[in-house]
C-alpha cells in the first residue's frame, strides 16, 4: 500500500552567471510531478533584496517555505540595520537556514545571484543541506548535468587551484551572458523533460534589476 512520502520533485533548472558589473539569474517556469505537468507558468525565483535574487528547484512546497522564510528574515534585517541585506550576507543566511533543517531538509537546490558590496557580480551555489561556494557561474536542478559542462566550456573560468586565487567572474559582456543562458536552457529543454515552457531571466546590475521572458519548447 502507498505510504506517505513528504517529498516530491517538481523539477526545473536554475542558472546564474556573474560578470564584472552584472549578474544574470534564470530559471524555467515549468512545474511538474512525475510525467505530469502541473503548470507551465510558475516562477521559481524570489527577489530577496535590491541586488540579490534566489532561484530554486526541487520540492515546490519546501521552496516556497524557504523563500518566504528568507524574505521575512531579510525584512527584519532591514528594520534592524536600516539597509538591505548584501548578497554575500544573504548567502550565509541561506546556508544557515538550510543547515537548520539538516535532519528533515528543505528539498531545494538553490542558486543565489547578485552583486556584492563592491558592485561585482556574485553567484552562490548550494546543496539541500547548506554547503555552499562562491563561484562565477552555476546551474542547479534537473537540467544542471546538461548545462554545467557547456557553461564550463564557454565561460573558461580559471581553475580554483591557481595561486594566487584568480577572479571567478566571467569575461563575457552582459548581453553575451544573457544569450549564453538562453542557449543552455534551449539545449537542456531538448533532453530534460522537467525543463521547458518558459524562461524567466533577471539581470542585476548597477542600474537595478531587469526581467525578461523567452519561450521554450512546451513538449
Amino acid at each position: 500500500m502507498a505510504r506517505f512520502d513528504p517529498y516530491e520533485n517538481n523539477g526545473g533548472t536554475c542558472v546564474a552567471v556573474a560578470g564584472a558589473g552584472y549578474c544574470v539569474v534564470a530559471a524555467d517556469t515549468r512545474l511538474s510531478v512525475g510525467y505530469s505537468i502541473l503548470s507551465r507558468d510558475h516562477s521559481k525565483m524570489a527577489q530577496l533584496a535590491d541586488k540579490c535574487v534566489l532561484a530554486s528547484s526541487g520540492f515546490q512546497g519546501d521552496i516556497k517555505a524557504l523563500q518566504k522564510n528568507l524574505a521575512a528574515k531579510e525584512l527584519v534585517y532591514e528594520h534592524n540595520h536600516n539597509k538591505k541585506m548584501s548578497c554575500p550576507a544573504m548567502a550565509q543566511l541561506l546556508s544557515n537556514t538550510l543547515y537548520y533543517k539538516r535532519f528533515f531538509p528543505y528539498y531545494a537546490f538553490n542558486v543565489l545571484g547578485g552583486l556584492d558590496s563592491q558592485g561585482k557580480g556574485c553567484v552562490f551555489t548550494y546543496d539541500a543541506v547548506g554547503s555552499y561556494e562562491r563561484t562565477g557561474y552555476s546551474a542547479q536542478g534537473t537540467g544542471a548535468a546538461l548545462m554545467m559542462p557547456v557553461l564550463d566550456n564557454q565561460l573558461k573560468s580559471p581553475s580554483p587551484l591557481l595561486l594566487p586565487a584568480r577572479d571567478a567572474v566571467t569575461p563575457l559582456s552582459e548581453s553575451e551572458a544573457v544569450d549564453l543562458v538562453k542557449d543552455v536552457f534551449a539545449s537542456a529543454t531538448e533532453r530534460d523533460i522537467y525543463t521547458g515552457d518558459r524562461l524567466e531571466i533577471v539581470v542585476i546590475n548597477s542600474s537595478g534589476t531587469h526581467r525578461e521572458y523567452i519561450e521554450l519548447r512546451k513538449d
Binding site: 517529498y7 516530491e8 512545474l31 510531478v33 502541473l38 503548470s39 510558475h42 520540492f59 516556497k64
Partner: peptide, 8 residues
C-alpha cells in the same frame, strides 16, 4: 497533501 501549490 504535501503543500505543493500553484495557480492556473
Amino acid at each position: 497533501m504535501i503543500g505543493t501549490h500553484f495557480e492556473e
